[in-house]
Simulated assay, not measured.
Amino acid sequence: MFKLVIIEDEKYAANYLKELVKDLAKDMEVVEVMESIADAKKRLPAINPDLVLADIHLEDGLSFEIFESLQWKKPVIFITAYDAYAIRAFKVNGIDYLLKPIDEEELQASLDKFRNASLNTNLESLYSRILELQKGGNHYKERFAISIGNKLLSIPVKDIAYFFFQNKTCFIQLFDGQKYPYTESLDHLSAVLNPADFIRVNRNYLISHAAIDKTEVYAGRNISIQLNPPAAEGSIVVSKDRITEFKCWLDL
């Protein structure tokens, strides 16, 4: 069993990453979650994990300081919302560099890379991937352009309560009660919206935190949500496979 340590100062992000590892890697165990550079410098050597999953931006600085200070030799997978530090990550035992929001398939590939390759293999391939990430950027959408007849509306994300799928069409629901059809899928929208503000709760709804009017737990575990503006069917239900993620997101 491989020992993993997560270094992440956002509780929701740490818990979500921990659950992902649990689901994706039965041969790996997250033995500790650390929230700061100071804490990691003090405790990491004693734990001596096989792999570290580290956010770059921590409240007390950049996590590179941990590995440079400790002269860390074990592999690290860096996870961050920014892409400006890719080359530096590569220089401090970074075997991969993942951008938030975390894609399960990319994390799985990173864990497989850890299992199957030493730090000295496939470096040229890794370097190319890092350069691609640097070029790509990771900017969440701030506005949506909507065509209504011969008009083109620009809708700020802050005005959007939620997105929903109905009658084979995706709709944008605004806080003022207006709704508009939109051509992209909920899967695509999940990837371009800030995960701190929006979450996919089931097959048909992607909601903002600000749109939640009331949340109720029933039958011991199931969760229903009342939205404002209200959903057409009244309350909506969080899918069973998204309950843990939703609870962590509420605790953000």
Rank of each mutant, 00 (worst) to 15 (best):
M1E: 07
F2K: 14
F2L: 12
K3A: 08
V5G: 09
V5F: 06
I7N: 01
E10C: 04
Y12K: 00
A13C: 07
N15F: 04
Y16H: 11
Y16E: 11
Y16D: 12
Y16R: 13
K18C: 12
E19V: 02
K22F: 10
K22L: 11
D23F: 05
D23H: 09
L24D: 05
E29K: 15
E32Y: 08
E32K: 14
S36D: 03
I37M: 04
D39T: 15
K42R: 11
L44I: 08
L44N: 11
N48K: 08
D50P: 08
D50T: 07
V52Y: 08
V52R: 09
V52G: 06
L53W: 04
S63T: 08
S63P: 05
F64E: 02
L70Q: 06
Q71T: 07
Q71H: 13
W72Y: 12
K73R: 11
K74M: 12
I77D: 04
I77G: 07
I79T: 03
T80I: 03
T80Y: 03
Y82G: 03
D83I: 00
A86S: 03
I87F: 12
I87N: 04
F90V: 00
L98D: 03
L99A: 09
E106R: 15
E106A: 14
Q108T: 13
K113I: 02
A117Q: 15
S118N: 13
S118K: 14
N120F: 15
T121M: 08
N122E: 14
N122H: 12
L123A: 01
L126K: 15
R129F: 03
R129A: 14
E132Q: 13
E132G: 15
E132I: 10
G137H: 05
Y140I: 06
K141G: 07
K141V: 08
R143P: 00
F144I: 01
I148D: 07
G149D: 10
N150S: 13
K151N: 12
K151W: 00
P156H: 06
V157I: 14
I160W: 05
A161F: 02
A161W: 05
A161V: 01
F164A: 00
K168I: 03
T169W: 00
C170G: 07
F175N: 07
D176F: 11
Q178P: 00
Q178E: 14
K179A: 02
Y180D: 05
P181N: 10
T183H: 11
E184A: 08
L186V: 03
L189Q: 00
N194R: 01
P195W: 05
P195V: 02
A196D: 12
D197L: 13
I199D: 01
V201P: 02
L206W: 03
I207F: 07
S208M: 01
A210I: 00
A210S: 11
A211V: 08
I212M: 14
D213R: 13
D213L: 12
K214Y: 06
T215H: 04
V217W: 06
Y218S: 05
G220M: 04
R221E: 13
I223R: 01
P229Y: 10
P229S: 07
P229Q: 10
A232Q: 08
A232N: 04
G234P: 06
S235R: 14
I236N: 01
V238A: 03
V238W: 04
V238T: 01
S239A: 15
S239F: 04
D241S: 12
K247D: 01
K247E: 11
W249V: 04
W249K: 05
L250M: 15
